[in-house]
Amino acid sequence: MKNINDMIMVVILLSVLLSLASSRLITLIKIMAVQGFLVSLLPLLLEHHSSMGSGGLIFFQVMILTKGILIPVLLYVALKRIAIQREIEPIIGYHASLFAGLIIILLSVFITDRLHLAVPSGQELILTTAITTMSAGFFLMMGRKKAITQVIGYLMLENGIFLIGTALIKHFHTVYMVEFGLLLDLLVGVMVMGIILHNINHAFDDIDTDLLNRLKD
């Protein structure tokens, strides 16, 4: 069991690095689908979650469906609708981003050590992964210009928060309030960004967030 968990976490970390280094939007969306799927799969495989009730199972299935399929499909549709041809013009280059990703992993290991959080045994790595995912999400949001990449960064950030929630929870619980809130948050975020994307595209014939500068007072 533990090996599978570790493998999943490694894949999540890899997906983070890959997303930092990839220049094609379609690839990014695919990576997000895989990441979302793995992130929502992880709690099911944890040992102390084994006594999960049917409600919890259904909840995580919904989670997998939303994160792994619904949101990526929405993003894909948005991508097709706005028909962007150009690749990302990053503020921070891909190689630099990849390097920054490695530094982020190191930093998160360091932070996990320093935080001294009461994490159940065997879950220390989840916290590292979570902080890495969060920071990388932030990094993606800051380092890219396209609105759709911002959404993807935001998704990654939420994945990280979700992982932190999973890591810190010691016992099985019946009310998935926080997780559900996150999910809702995500969907709304994607919807809003979809609308904004559409509107930026409509108004400026491009989806660079730089164009939003013109909206300030």
Binding site: I91, M141, M142, G143, Q150, L212, K216
Partner: peptide, 11 residues
Amino acid sequence: IQHGNVQLYIG
């Protein structure tokens, strides 16, 4: 402070 740059806002 309000420069309109989304990336810096996240910063």
